[in-house]
């Protein structure tokens, strides 16, 4: 596909914007439509497009299979880890220290850079959606690699 100038140039132009749009859908998901699932798929489709146009070896350099394989687990661990973190953090505004429930985001309340860093519920949703996004991206890319990396056994 790399020998077709139109496809090569157009996809080179498009891929950065697809990635940017994926990040927008990911981090703006609290305010507009979107979230981790959609963003992950869009991000993965940019990598898939790159692999189709420039070949699998080039894509392996952008998104090495060894790294992507690990990211599959990292996203899920980030999600579950957010839940476990809330088990051990104290609830805000309590006289007696009480720790939160699983995935209770209220305990992430903090006063660091208010208005800039997400806090409380917002931080919890942010972390959870990030975990979803990482897992979905990695799974989509790894499935594509698994299919495209096979040779035809005739």
């Amino acid at each position: 596909m790399i020998s077709f100038p139109i496809i090569r140039v157009v996809s080179k132009l498009l891929i950065p914007y697809i990635l940017l749009f994926a990040l927008y859908v990911q981090f703006h998901g609290d305010f507009g439509p979107g979230g981790g699932f959609q963003a992950g798929v869009i991000f993965a489709s940019a990598i898939v497009l790159y692999a189709m146009v420039f070949g699998l070896p080039a894509a392996y350099e952008v998104a090495p299979p060894k790294v992507i394989e690990k990211l599959v687990a990292v996203g899920l661990l980030l999600y579950a880890g957010t839940g476990f973190a809330s088990l051990f953090l104290p609830r805000p505004n309590q006289d007696v220290p009480v720790t939160g429930n699983f995935l209770e985001y209220e305990v992430f309340q903090h006063n660091l850079l208010p208005g800039i860093l997400p806090t409380g519920q917002h931080l919890g949703i942010f972390l959870v959606e990030l975990g979803v996004g990482i897992t979905v991206t990695a799974v989509m890319i790894i499935i594509f690699y698994a299919f495209a990396g096979r040779e035809r056994v005739a």
Binding site: G29, D30, F31, G32, P33, G35, Y79, A80, G83, F102, L103, Y105, T119, G120, Q121, H122, G124, I125, V128, E129, V132
Partner: peptide, 21 residues
């Protein structure tokens, strides 16, 4: 949700966070 306007996201990741996990 302290002012998060998207109810879909708050149900998905907040109220129903365990399902999404």
């Amino acid at each position: 949700m302290h002012g998060l306007p998207n109810v879909v996201t708050s149900v998905l990741a907040g109220y129903r966070g365990y399902d999404t996990l």
